[in-house]
Amino acid sequence: MTNQELQALVEKISQESFRQPFCHKASFNQRLKTTGGRYHLKSHDLDFNHLVFEKYGIEELAKVIKHELCHYHLHMAGRGYQHKDREFKQLLKKTGGSRFTPPLITMTYQVYQCEKCGQEVKRRRKLDTERFVCGDCLGKLKFLKTIEA
């Protein structure tokens, strides 16, 4: 999906779900990693994570667009546009937008096991098994596997 197609989709969803025009710019932002979208308070532009469309398809992207449009339309109307505001929560529920983005990145973990007590240790970073030992019994650690969660 290109930025022009995204702009057209945002304008269409704004008209259908909110019955108000979207008069600013919507685009994909390659720098977004963990969030689905972002609303800019000063410029009123919307940024979206390209991974939402690539991993979950247009249905999930439409929910993220509705979420960001809730921020947009409430802010433009001078009403409560933040996540904590009741008006935001009500409008989000009414339009069918998603409250949270599904996981966009997978985390990898290194699993180690103590040779002495059998304790399993799960770490995000690799450990130097010559330098680090078990925290319980000071036994030697052995690398088992890498897992994704």
Rank of each mutant, 00 (worst) to 15 (best):
A77K: 09
Q20D: 00
F53K: 12
F18V: 14
A26K: 10
F48E: 07
L32M: 04
M1G: 10
G118F: 09
R19V: 08
E87V: 11
T106Q: 04
V133K: 07
E68I: 14
H24I: 03
Q113P: 00
R123Q: 03
R131D: 08
E115Y: 00
K116R: 12
A8M: 05
L104C: 06
F18T: 08
Y112A: 01
E148D: 06
Q119V: 06
H40P: 02
L141V: 05
H73K: 08
Y72D: 03
V64R: 13
L127W: 03
G97I: 06
V133A: 09
E11Q: 14
E54A: 15
C137S: 07
G36Y: 02
K42V: 11
Q7C: 14
C70A: 15
G118C: 02
R99H: 06
L141M: 10
K63N: 13
G96R: 12
H24W: 07
E54P: 05
K66L: 15
K33H: 12
S43M: 09
E59Q: 13
V52H: 12
D128R: 10
R131I: 05
E11C: 13
G57S: 03
M76Q: 15
D45A: 08
Q119K: 13
G96P: 01
E148G: 09
Q15R: 11
E115F: 00
V121I: 15
K12D: 08
K25C: 05
G96N: 14
D47Y: 00
T35R: 15
L9C: 07
I13S: 07
I13H: 13
L46Q: 12
E148S: 07
F28N: 08
L104V: 04
G80H: 02
I105K: 05
P21S: 15
E87G: 00
E120Q: 09
D85R: 03
V64Y: 02
H44Q: 09
A62L: 02
K126C: 05
S17M: 10
E115G: 13
I147D: 06
G78F: 11
Y112V: 00
G57W: 05
F18Q: 09
Y39M: 11
K126F: 11
H40R: 10
T108P: 01
K145L: 01
K93W: 02
H75C: 06
H40W: 10
R79I: 07
K93A: 11
R86K: 12
K140F: 03
E115T: 14
Y112H: 05
Y81C: 11
K55F: 04
D45V: 01
C114E: 00
E60Y: 08
H73D: 09
L141H: 01
F100T: 08
L74W: 06
E120G: 01
L144A: 02
K140E: 13
S27H: 11
S27K: 14
P103V: 12
R99F: 13
H44Y: 10
Q20G: 01
K84I: 06
D45L: 00
T95Y: 07
L9A: 11
E68K: 04
K42P: 03
T129K: 03
P102C: 04
Q7S: 09
V133M: 07
L138G: 07
L46G: 13
P103M: 05
C134V: 06
V64K: 11
V121F: 11
Q113H: 14
F28D: 10
V64P: 10
N49C: 15
C70H: 06
T95F: 07
K42F: 02
S17N: 12
I105D: 09
L46D: 04
K42T: 09
E60N: 02
F28H: 01
C137P: 04
I105C: 06
